[in-house]
Amino acid sequence: MAGVSGCLKYSMFFFNFLFWVCGTLILALAIWVRVSKDGKEIITSGDAGTNPFVAVNILIAVGAIIMVLGFLGCCGAVKESRCMLLLFFIGLLLILLLQVAAGILGATFKSESSRLLNETLSENAKFLTQTTDEAKEFQKAMISFQEEFQCCGLVKGAEDWGNNFQEAKDSCKCTDATRTQCTTYQGNSVNSQTCLTSIKDLVEKNIIIVIGLAFGLAVIEILGLVFSMVLYCQIGSK
């Protein structure tokens, strides 16, 4: 009868031990942020219009899943437990299938997501002309964004700011030496590119990064599936 490969066995253990440690750290950090006074102050110091605990709860779930899978992989390799290895294989396979499904849905609804982004930003453009506290917070964020990405307004350019343009004109100021990216509004040279275009470009660049990370993670998961199944079969043929 064939024996179990020691190299494969301990490689599987080491990989899943690191996996388990990462899951434990994520879970511990998320729980600390969720229950400690200092952690609550950190996550509630941002935008009051969103639920700050949603991301923390997601991290708790992710950390717990990674921790359980790492434990199953470690114990399954060391104890040569076919049951644990099979559970590890099933759990990792489900995660991989969810990633594939998310990728297919993302590709299918790419045009829809672009339309929703356009509608959302067009709707938010109204905050640039208002004077409410909520609008002022949005305007501060927009001014910072305009300064960083050298754009002006959301949909129609500087015109979006209305009577509030004087507060934003410095961030809209065009510094292009060739003047090809400049236009004139109320006697001021401002960037002709709208922030809607900059935001869409930024989203597209980040999507490419996310796709790359997801692909790399999928390769690691497939290797984990192969190693766990090989080890499972070797244990069964002992």
Score class of each variant (00 low, 15 high):
5 S>D: 13
5 S>A: 05
10 Y>W: 11
10 Y>A: 08
18 L>K: 00
23 G>A: 05
26 I>A: 10
26 I>E: 02
28 A>T: 13
31 I>L: 10
31 I>V: 15
31 I>A: 09
33 V>L: 13
35 V>T: 11
35 V>S: 05
36 S>H: 04
40 K>A: 11
42 I>E: 11
43 I>N: 06
46 G>R: 04
50 T>G: 07
50 T>Q: 11
54 V>Y: 10
54 V>A: 10
54 V>C: 03
56 V>E: 09
56 V>F: 02
63 G>W: 04
66 I>M: 14
68 V>L: 15
73 G>S: 05
80 E>D: 08
80 E>P: 06
82 R>E: 13
86 L>V: 08
88 F>M: 03
91 G>C: 08
92 L>K: 03
92 L>S: 12
92 L>R: 02
93 L>T: 12
94 L>P: 01
100 V>M: 14
101 A>G: 04
101 A>K: 00
109 F>G: 09
112 E>F: 09
116 L>P: 03
116 L>W: 13
117 L>R: 13
117 L>P: 05
119 E>I: 14
121 L>P: 10
126 K>E: 13
126 K>W: 04
127 F>K: 12
128 L>N: 06
130 Q>P: 01
133 D>R: 04
140 K>V: 14
140 K>E: 14
141 A>Y: 14
142 M>C: 07
146 Q>K: 06
149 F>R: 12
149 F>M: 08
151 C>G: 08
152 C>L: 01
153 G>Y: 05
154 L>R: 01
156 K>H: 08
156 K>D: 12
156 K>M: 04
157 G>L: 01
158 A>S: 14
159 E>H: 04
160 D>Y: 05
161 W>T: 07
162 G>N: 00
162 G>C: 01
165 F>P: 00
167 E>Q: 11
172 C>S: 05
175 T>S: 04
178 T>E: 12
180 T>G: 03
181 Q>L: 11
187 G>R: 01
191 N>I: 05
195 C>W: 03
195 C>L: 07
196 L>I: 08
197 T>H: 05
198 S>Y: 00
206 N>Y: 13
207 I>T: 07
208 I>T: 02
210 V>W: 00
215 F>W: 00
216 G>L: 02
217 L>I: 11
218 A>S: 11
221 E>T: 07
223 L>V: 11
228 S>V: 03
229 M>I: 09
229 M>R: 03
230 V>C: 14
231 L>F: 03
234 Q>R: 08
234 Q>H: 03
235 I>L: 04
